[in-house]
Structures are given as C-alpha cells and as structure tokens.
Amino acid sequence: MKDERSTTQNTIDQPSRRWDVKGRILGIPISLVVIWAALFVTASAIPALPVPGMGGVITINAIMTAISGVVLGPAAAVANMAGGIISMLLFPFGAFLGPLSFLTVTVGGLVSGLLLANRWKLAGVVELLVVATWFVNPDSWQTLMWIVPLPYTAVTLLVIFFPPLRHWARKQILSLDRVRIWPAMFLYVTVAHSAEFLTTNAMVNWMYDLSWQYWVPTWLYWVSVDTVIIVISTIIGVGVLTGLHRARLPHATEIYR
C-alpha cells in the first residue's frame, strides 16, 4: 500500500509539506475554550453541597474547576474565567464574592494547567501568591488559623516544589497509565481545588473578616467537603481524560505528550 502511494506521488516533483496548527489559545483550539466555558456555566446551575451557616451551596462547577487544568492546560484559566464571568452575569445573585467570584476558578485552572504544561515555576509563583494573600491578612495569625489551608495546600506545595513527585505525577497523567493515573489525577485535582478554595477563603477574609471563631470550628466540615470534591473529581477526571484519548478528541495532554 505504502509503495504504491509513493509511486503515484512521484508523478509530480514536489516535496510534501508539514503544517503546524494555527489559531490556538495557549495551545488549545479556541472552540474548546468556548465549549469549556459553556460547560462550566451549565455546571454552575447544578447544586451539589450546602455551605454551613450561610445558606449557600457549592455547585458542581467545583468539579469542573478541579479537572480543567488536566483537560485544557493553562488555557483552563481563560476558559474558567470566561465561565465564571458568564455565571456571574446570568445568576448575579449567586455569589457572595460578587463580581470578583471568577478569580477563584481562574486561579484553580491556572495552577494545575501550568503544572501540566511543565511551567512549574510559574505555577509555584501563583500558588505562593495565593498562600501569601491568605497569610498576610491579620485574621490568619489568630489562634489555630494555620490549620485552615491544611492539609491540601501542603500537598499542593509538595507536588509543585518536590521534583520527583512533580515529574512522576505529570508523567502518569500524560502517559494515561491504567492504574497509576488514579493517584496522579488525585494530586492534580488536589492542586487545582486547593488553589481555588484558598483563593476563595482569602477573598472572604479580606472582604468580610471572618475570624478563627468561624474557621476553626468548621474546619473538619470543610476538609471533608474538599475531600469529597477531590475524590469525585478524580473519578470524573480519569473518565474524561481516557474518554477524550480514546475518541481522539483534542485536549491538553495530547499537546504536552
């Protein structure tokens, strides 16, 4: 078959030319960024978990944020930002961080996306900035406040700054190893989710001065909420990633492989 083809091709004397794909946003086709933003808004309308003492809910866009970096790479930041802004425009009553709510999901997608793109230094800078905005606020110097970002921020910092773990997780995600993708996905999802919730917490504290009297008693609840979100996002993340790979659909791990 191959030989036959080459003989017909030799009829004209022109070398074949290799074309690189064009018109992308951080390596991702703009249509995917658009579609992700629309998916994100759809997910924002589906409630999942209540917020204690506040009457609000966490919607399943928390899951979308957690897996966005693995699916889209750094472009996840743009997609989540667009999705967050639209959610705010359509349901302007939903978010107590007001018009700035989109920042949290942007940061979540950014840190994990940069990590997937192997831009770990930049990911580290962003994550440290988030940690700093939390700790610079005098509220977080109060009794026991240091436990609030724990344990998942510690895991995140470890994934970003401990080279063996960073390399291992990235390798497993990119190679889609049947078994080892699970712990690796858990780590990536943790990075995204912890970056998101620490940004949220920091913003809440700067705006509304919630002191340790709120954070410390609800600590256990929040850690379990985060755990549930991270576990379910791991399952969905693996499902989505292997599905995309099998169907040969465009996504980020294809670019960085």
């Binding site: 022109q14 074949s16 030319r17 290799r18 074309w19």
Partner: peptide, 21 residues
C-alpha cells in the same frame, strides 16, 4: 486543511486564482 488542522500535504490547491499555501 492544512492551516487549521496541521498534518502533511502534498500537491497544489488553487481556488479563485489563489494558492491556498
């Protein structure tokens, strides 16, 4: 094709007098 999808192309396509390359 090939500008958006990338890939390998050989030959010539001229449309309305314009070479798509």
């Amino acid at each position: 094709v090939p500008r958006l999808f990338g890939g390998e192309m050989k030959g010539k396509v001229v449309v309305a007098g314009l070479d798509t390359y």
